[in-house]
């Protein structure tokens, strides 16, 4: 890995390729349980990739990413509820709807910085959570059933099909975030993260770049949400719950925020830890919580520093 976590196909990049190749072969084991877990990991990794654009490269600590994830799922569910199961339409609605939502909420949230940004993103996501439980047409607390989407002959209700579609979209997400970060837009975003005042004096308006990053991240999270709705055959308020936002942040930082492949490793390790711990005890959070605190303590540069090793700088938490 090189400066700013770019994949130079060394270290992390190679490990990611090996991991993805392993995932591609995994269904050969013919274990339904394993394919389900795998699909869940791909979806969460995709959502974490989108959060990485904000936290890792934009320096924007959003604690409301469940909003866009859940909105994507609900877009699919609402269309399904009214009888539209065509994949292109449902996924376009999920991506477009989440992007629009991110535009609106981002425009308001980005007016403040630091702890206020964290609180406001959390509050807006909670608003959607309450809204989903209060609206009867959305099924209230129970949520909505989803008939899985079809893309021509590809039916996402088929376990293996959904597995490979999710894996494919995860790979696409990795490539997109890699190109985006290295693009003209991406380096302005990173520049604003590193030195906002300097970027202003060069002629950049930080608000525009941050808002656009917010919209792109929202769209990607919406895509992940659409997949989740197909996996669960359901969209429920749980997908909008603040704890999802927290989990996504934990995965991001465990894997290494501000690194392209970090979200993949974060999602995989978080799910593995969760599966292993919950094999021993139903109260796995009793151990994971303090572990998280310890990890933050042990690494002076934050959790990202612990895992990312040689990167010349780490993401700042928006102080």
């Amino acid at each position: 890995m090189k400066v700013r976590g770019r994949v130079a196909l060394s270290g992390g990049g190679v490990a990611a390729l090996v991991l993805l190749a392993g995932f591609a072969l995994l269904p050969l084991a013919q274990q339904p349980f394993v394919t389900r877990i795998g699909t869940g990991i791909f979806i969460l990794a995709l959502a974490t990739i989108s959060l990485n654009l904000l936290v890792g490269y934009g320096g924007l600590v959003s604690f409301g990413h469940a909003a866009y994830f859940g909105a994507g799922a609900y877009a699919v569910a609402i269309l399904s509820h009214y009888g539209t199961h065509r994949g292109w339409i449902a996924f376009a609605a999920a991506v477009g709807g989440s992007a629009l939502l991110a535009l609106i909420l981002g425009a308001a949230s980005l007016r403040v910085r630091g702890v206020f940004f964290i609180m406001i993103t959390l509050a807006f996501a909670q608003m959607l959570y309450h809204l989903s439980t209060a609206v009867e047409k959305l099924g209230g607390d129970d949520g909505l059933r989803v008939v899985p989407n079809s893309f021509g002959p590809l039916f996402l209700g088929e376990r293996i099909t959904l597995y490979y579609v999710s894996l494919g979209l995860l790979c696409a997400g990795l490539v997109i975030s890699d190109r985006l970060v290295a693009s003209h837009f991406g380096r302005v975003l990173v520049g604003i993260r590193d030195n906002e005042r300097r970027m202003r004096s060069l002629g950049y308006n930080p608000y525009h770049y941050r808002l656009l990053a917010f919209v792109i991240a929202g769209a990607l999270a919406g895509l992940a949400g659409a997949l989740e709705a197909n996996l669960d055959a359901y969209a429920s308020p749980e997908l909008l719950h603040w704890s999802i936002s927290g989990d996504l942040l934990v995965m991001l930082v465990l894997g290494g925020s501000g690194s392209i492949v970090g979200p993949l490793f974060g999602a995989v390790s978080f799910q593995l830890v969760q599966q292993v711990l919950s094999g021993f005890t139903s109260h796995w959070m009793l151990y994971f919580g303090p572990a998280l605190v310890l990890i933050v303590f042990v690494s002076r540069r934050g959790v990202a520093g612990l895992f990312a090793g040689t990167r010349p700088h780490h993401v700042r938490g928006g102080r």
């Binding site: 936290v55 600590v61 604690f63 630091g114 702890v115 964290i118 927290g246 942040l249 934990v250 930082v253 925020s257 994971f288 919580g289 303090p290 572990a291 998280l292 605190v293 990890i295 933050v296 303590f297 934050g302 959790v303 993401v315 700042r316 938490g317 928006g318 102080r319």
Partner: peptide, 10 residues
């Protein structure tokens, strides 16, 4: 703030 958020989330 990111570290604070993670630790207090834990």
């Amino acid at each position: 703030h990111l570290d604070q958020v993670l630790a207090t989330f834990g």
